[in-house]
Write a protein that binds this DNA or RNA. Structure first.
Lengths: 193, 193
DNA sequence: GTCTATAGCTGGATAGAC
DNA sequence: GTCTATCCAGCTATAGAC
């Protein structure tokens, strides 16, 4: 396929080191060294460290977005089944992309990127979820709590679940755990359960 | 009361700057300047930056722990009422100590302190919750999912709720929001709701 | 205990050869 | 595009006067 350019090597090394050490405490020099390229090469491909971080952030968010597409045959199913499918897509992506998930957390807590960029990325990410919740409320399947509270709740729930399985890798394979994790998610927002 | 020593000033300034900028990107020089003391004074009171951070972490965790004590008359109430009381204590502490809460997040994601210290602090913190869950399961009030999953779930739920209200301060005063937030928490783990 | 001054080092970023 | 060499700012931490 598309060959691995030095730019790609740098992005990949950056992701690895960021997720291990945090963004601020990872030097550009160490990124270049880990990628096996010269220091100056990094600044040929990226204007500065911030530009490197935001390139990585945007690329990772796009990866995630493209993983969260529901297949067409699901659209005829019940809302709960659609939510469950979405939830499993997200969890699967999280456990198979642990570096990206911790990187997202770091971008949020280290205040490295401008808030505007993060909020914009979040908005598009939550639009599917927002639609599902609205539909579910109209069908009296989902509790009628304020939308902002529900959206925040669902999002942090998913991230927390992903991190839990990343931190306890041996549990990923156990179907009971995965099912229970979804049940905790669904019971909270569903009417009648 | 106890007078504010320069050591206290330094800890307080550190907390403010850390929560705004992150730990790694806050210099000891800026902490001393913000506290209105000389650079060298910081290193008289703390051996190095790590020692400053861990002192602050331990003190903050103790503050939190002392805020989470249930009053005696609650012990005769139902388990749900005890859980609800604990939940509100935690939420109240969070919204009135926003700097501490973001600082906890930063310690966790920036990997600044040794994991052992963090795990130890977490263990004691979760012991009350663990007891409540175990009792609730015996009484068939709380779902019988694995304890590690439930503990992680409850903890991240509480933190997420706290951060939500810190990020949306205008909603704190609205009782409905607080009640709904607790309901989302309780519905997930309660049997029969 | 608190200050000033500064040592010693590391980081981000640039210049210029190839 | 990639490299080597290097500049300069800012950081942690120390020394020593008061």
């Amino acid at each position: 396929m598309s060959k691995t350019t030095k730019r790609d090597l740098l992005l990949n090394s950056a992701l690895t080191l960021f997720s291990e050490q945090g963004i601020h405490s990872t030097s550009t020099a160490s990124i270049a060294k880990h990628a096996g390229v010269a220091n100056g090469t990094l600044f040929h491909h990226f204007e500065n460290k911030h530009s490197l971080v935001s390139s990585l952030y945007i690329a990772s968010k796009q990866q995630l977005a493209s993983a969260l597409v529901l297949s067409d045959d699901l659209l005829s199913q019940s809302l709960k089944q659609q939510v469950e499918a979405l939830w499993h897509l997200a969890l699967n992506w999280a456990v198979s992309h642990p570096r990206q998930l911790t990187f997202f957390q770091q971008v949020a807590t280290e205040n490295f990127l401008p808030q505007a960029l993060r909020i914009k990325a979040m908005k598009t990410e939550l639009s599917i979820l927002e639609m599902m919740i609205t539909v579910g409320q109209a069908q009296k399947i989902i509790v009628e709590y304020p939308l902002d509270l529900l959206l925040d709740h669902c999002q942090s729930q998913m991230i927390a679940s992903g991190l839990f399985f990343i931190n306890n890798p041996s549990l990923i394979a156990i179907d009971d755990y995965r099912d229970n994790a979804f049940n905790l998610f669904w019971r909270a927002i569903a009417i009648d359960a």
